[in-house]
């Protein structure tokens, strides 16, 4: 094999510039797209909140200051949506987390067929959200779904009716679908964190005489705490913005009982074509979520400082 050194004409300066620009060239296409399709629309969206933008009205477009926000202050539907969002997000996140944690703990124990079980219980995560919504809407439909009959048999329902059309109960429908759909996300994240806990810690603890409950409280929970905190934070923000299931299952009804802010924005933009007002609501939601995230981060910080 020839190893003769060809004397390359060295162009250090040109080469250095080429080297320095390499990472920028690689990331440029992704960045341009993100800026063009996400950042610019975000800025535009914020500006729309202060303008009169109606798609079918050619005379709209003018600057109207805080009018949208004043209207929002009077909008009973918005405040109902805000309360519904709290309910929807709180119940969904709480149930997803509890059932996800239990599933992760169950799967952390080795048993025959664990790989298959894991694939099966994580499957809902792969189901498209709109299909999950439709699927659960059908399950709640007394004509073809078994759930109303079962609930009636258990005495939870007076008659085998569709809870999605019952103003008192309708919200439970999308929540059930959301829990079914979201458990795998929590389980996968928590399982990964569980498996990162050094096994010898448990052995040391049982030598020290700690029972299963003590081991869980003194080892598992503290180790999982950071993952739990960040996952719940991200999931809360995400679920507050997640309108698919509600749009598919109830479209906000009956009587706006399941209308959350995200689906309300969608209704304003898509059905009324009032983009200005939709953007104003979205801006309020964004600010509320930012405040929430900030509070959580601050709370964590103070807890860390104390501990």
């Amino acid at each position: 094999m020839t190893l003769a050194a060809h004397s390359h004409a060295a162009k250090p300066l040109r080469k250095r510039i080429a080297d320095a620009s390499e990472p920028y060239l690689y990331s440029a296409p992704a960045l341009i797209l993100i800026i063009g399709v996400m950042l610019v629309p975000l800025v535009l969206g914020i500006s729309y909140a202060f303008r009169d933008i109606q798609l079918l009205n050619p005379f709209s477009g003018g600057f109207i200051g805080l009018d949208h926000f004043r209207a929002l202050g009077q909008d009973q539907a918005f405040f109902r949506a805000l309360r519904n969002t709290l309910w929807w997000t709180g119940a969904s996140v709480f149930l997803q987390f509890i059932f996800g944690l239990i599933l992760a703990l169950l799967l952390d124990k080795p048993f025959a067929g664990r790989g298959l079980v894991q694939a099966l219980v994580f499957l809902p995560w792969a189901v498209p959200s709109f299909l999950a919504g439709l699927n659960w809407a059908w399950l709640f439909n007394p004509v073809i779904g078994p759930l109303p009959h079962w609930l009636h048999a258990l005495g939870l329902l007076d008659a085998p009716n569709n809870i999605l059309s019952d103003p008192q109960l309708a919200m439970w429908g999308p929540i059930a679908a959301n829990v079914w759909w979201g458990i795998p996300f929590f389980a996968i994240t928590l399982l990964a964190a569980l498996q990162a806990i050094p096994r010898d810690l448990y052995e040391a603890a049982s030598i020290d005489g700690a029972g299963p409950v003590q081991r869980f409280l003194s080892i598992t929970l503290p180790f999982l705490a950071p993952t739990i905190a960040i996952t719940i934070l991200l999931r809360t923000v995400w679920i507050s913005n997640f309108a698919d299931l509600i749009v598919v299952m109830t479209n906000g009804g009956p009587a706006d009982r399941t209308q959350i802010v995200a689906s309300y924005i969608f209704t304003q933009a898509f059905k009324r074509l009032d983009f200005g007002y939709a953007s104003a609501i979205a801006l309020v939601l964004l600010v509320l979520l930012l405040v929430y995230s900030l509070l959580i981060v601050l709370l964590r910080q103070t807890m860390l400082n104390k501990g």
């Binding site: 190893l3 003769a4 050194a5 060809h6 004397s7 390359h8 060295a10 250090p12």
Partner: peptide, 16 residues
Amino acid sequence: LIGGQRMNDVPPAQRG
């Protein structure tokens, strides 16, 4: 210099 030839800008594979 490897074998008397300046190698500063020669790619690794051609340095022998």
